Computed example of a mutant assay.
Amino acid sequence: MHRGLVHALAWTLATGAAVTLSWWGVHTVMSGTAYDPPLAVPLTTQPLSSSTHSAAAPSPEPAPDSPSPSSSASPSAAASSAKPPQKAAPPSPRPEEQQGDGGDPGKVKAYPVTGGRVVFDLGTTSAELVSATPDAGWQMQVWKQPYWIRVTFTKAGREMSVFCTWNGHPPLVETYEG
């Protein structure tokens, strides 16, 4: 009886060690793949314009026009009024100005389809997948090649594919339901 318990304990410890080692190996390999959570990109319905930044600039600028008791206060007021526009000027680039592969200026566009949503960064000569999110109950698969990207959503025999191709032409996005 004692011998059987020792064998069972040894088997349990060996199995636990093997499962732990296998999980660690798979986790290490899978940590840098397409299964990482997609990055969120803010999408706006209207493009940002420089007028939004200039609208904020007039409020601090009237300070230099106001009378000041000393001439040294005026340069400090001018310096303080110059700082807010400088801070407001370098916000994150608009989606239309974000960079795609190889420094290609791109335009981030979302494609909501049956089964999920796909977001591409479309440049003039290439494209990049920003995110692909399946709807509840749908499965998703992504294929990336040098001149095309395919995202397929599947559920109960239904299949919806979004293709982005750019082989010798600007990126073109097409959807197919099968």
Rank of each mutant, 00 (worst) to 15 (best):
L48F: 15
T45L: 13
S68L: 03
A88G: 01
T45M: 12
S66T: 07
H53E: 13
P85G: 00
A82F: 04
D65A: 09
Q99H: 08
K83A: 15
Q86K: 14
S71M: 05
S51V: 08
S50I: 14
P93W: 04
E97F: 11
P69S: 06
P85D: 01
S68V: 03
S76Q: 15
S49M: 02
S72N: 03
G100L: 01
P42W: 15
P69Q: 06
H53L: 13
P91Q: 04
P85C: 02
S49Y: 11
P93A: 07
P58V: 10
P93I: 02
Q46T: 14
S76P: 00
K87I: 13
L48C: 08
P93G: 08
A88T: 08
P64Q: 15
R94Y: 07
A79Y: 11
P95K: 01
S80M: 10
A56E: 05
S59Q: 08
P64S: 15
E97I: 04
T45P: 14
D65K: 12
A78N: 00
S70I: 05
S80D: 04
P84C: 01
Q86G: 12
P42R: 10
A88I: 09
T45V: 13
Q98M: 11
P85K: 02
L43W: 02
P64H: 11
S92W: 08
K83E: 12
P85V: 02
A77G: 09
R94Q: 08
S59G: 08
S54E: 09
P84S: 03
P42Q: 12
A56H: 07
S72Y: 11
H53C: 10
H53F: 12
L48E: 13
A57M: 08
A73M: 14
H53I: 15
S70D: 05
S72R: 04
S59F: 14
T44I: 07
E97G: 05
S50G: 11
G100E: 00
P58D: 05
P84V: 04
S74Y: 12
H53Q: 12
A79M: 12
P47D: 07
Q99L: 09
P42H: 14
E97R: 12
P69R: 14
D65H: 12
S80K: 07
L43V: 13
P47T: 04
D101E: 06
P85H: 02
S54N: 05
D65C: 09
Q46H: 13
P62M: 11
P90I: 11
A77T: 14
A78Y: 06
S68E: 03
A56P: 01
A82W: 04
K87C: 07
P95S: 03
A56V: 11
Q46W: 13
P60I: 01
P90L: 09
T44K: 06
P69M: 03
A77Y: 02
P62D: 08
A79S: 15
S92H: 11
L43H: 06
P69H: 03
K87F: 10
E96A: 08
A78E: 01
S59E: 07
Q98A: 06
P91A: 00
P93S: 08
Q98L: 06
S80E: 01
R94C: 11
P67S: 04
